[in-house]
């Protein structure tokens, strides 16, 4: 009896045996998973194929500074119709630098802030406040970023323009770059506001899942609450916190509309030599550049250039997942998750 069942299992499918229901379900699930992988691979290949002319024409200098990226992009847009004379020249450094700066600064500010907020919510807040904070944070995390962008462009940008931008600075840089309130500062600020709620939610979940027995063990050794949470809680939750950072970074990287509204929409690399005024200078991050240029897709070389930006975004998100995985490794050695 058992042998017969075994034989049926081992008989090749080609022999015309009907599949059992579980076997069919397995096949479907497998096909679905493989299909998903194929879809992602296909998308990657497609984007890179489209982007290739832009990269191939510029070589590695695509990633380097040189010239004015605004006029370069305009030249690409106004390429002659003859494919032999397409213009691809682009030095995308200011775009990459602006993306790096706004995303990096936003995550840098958001991480300690969200960690402390989460710690407060989980351990130190009175129960009433904690109960109120949790849904509030969830709601804030779900606010569409366009709303933030609208507030930014209608309220904050004029305020910055009136109160923070000095007239002399505005005049100084006028021939090179327009200053109008929107810029690195506003972009970073609103990005931070946008990603903090997600990071609080993730960090709070991470801290809540720290085993009670470790926290108690530390308390029983005479270590105060604050140090206990810092040395045991945050340390143990590090992988999840890193995952939260990755998620928030990915969201900040992919944010397009809101950044297009508040970043000043002028491709420029804020100059550290300008001191704090650097924060007022405009940027145009990758995703925002794609959005801004979306209406020019009918021009082939311009479209291909936008695909090149998309390719860079894809590669950076790939690196982000790898970084998230690497951040989990040291704790795995200790048997945490």
């Amino acid at each position: 009896m058992r042998n017969a069942a075994l034989a049926a299992k081992l008989r090749p499918r080609a022999a015309g045996r009907r599949l059992t229901r579980p076997e069919r379900a397995e096949l479907w699930l497998g096909a679905l998973a493989v299909g998903l992988l194929a879809l992602i691979a296909g998308m990657l290949v497609f984007v890179f194929r489209q982007a290739w002319p832009s990269f191939a024409h510029n070589g590695l200098s695509w990633f380097l500074p040189g010239g004015n990226a605004n006029t370069q992009l305009a030249d690409v847009y106004h390429s002659p119709a003859d494919p032999a004379h397409y213009v691809y020249t682009l030095r995308a450094w200011p775009i990459l630098y602006g993306t790096l700066l706004s995303t990096g600064l936003a995550v840098l500010f958001a991480l300690p802030f969200s960690l402390l907020c989460a710690l407060f919510m989980v351990e130190f807040a009175p129960p009433g406040i904690a109960r109120l904070m949790t849904p509030t944070v969830r709601f804030l995390a779900a606010v569409p970023s366009v709303v933030y962008g609208l507030i930014g462009i209608l309220v904050l940008a004029p305020w910055i323009n009136d109160h923070l931008v000095s007239a002399s600075f505005k005049l100084d840089v006028k021939p090179i770059v327009p200053i109008g309130g929107g810029g690195l500062l506003l972009a970073t600020l609103i990005l931070t506001v946008m990603i903090v709620p997600i990071m609080i939610a993730i960090n709070a979940d991470a801290l809540r899942s720290v085993p009670r027995s470790w926290l108690e063990g530390s308390a029983a050794l005479g270590v105060n609450r604050w140090r206990t949470w810092w040395k045991i809680g945050v340390r143990t939750a590090r992988p999840a916190i890193a995952a939260g950072v990755v998620l928030a970074t990915a969201r900040a990287l992919g944010e397009a509309i809101m950044l297009a509204m508040v970043s000043g929409s002028f491709i420029f690399a804020p100059n550290p030599l300008d001191g704090l005024n650097m924060l007022l200078e405009p940027i145009q991050p990758l995703a925002a550049t794609i959005v801004v240029g979306a209406e020019g897709l009918s021009v082939k070389p311009y479209g291909q250039t936008l695909y090149a930006f998309a390719a860079v975004l894809l590669v950076s998100s790939m690196f982000l997942s790898i970084a998230g995985w690497a951040a989990r490794q040291p704790m795995r050695r200790h048997g945490v998750r």
Binding site: S213, E216, G217, I232, T236, H334, G335, V336
Partner: peptide
């Protein structure tokens, strides 16, 4: 205090 379940830190 030593607890019922061993709880060494990670």
């Amino acid at each position: 205090m030593v607890f019922q379940q061993p709880n060494p830190f990670p």
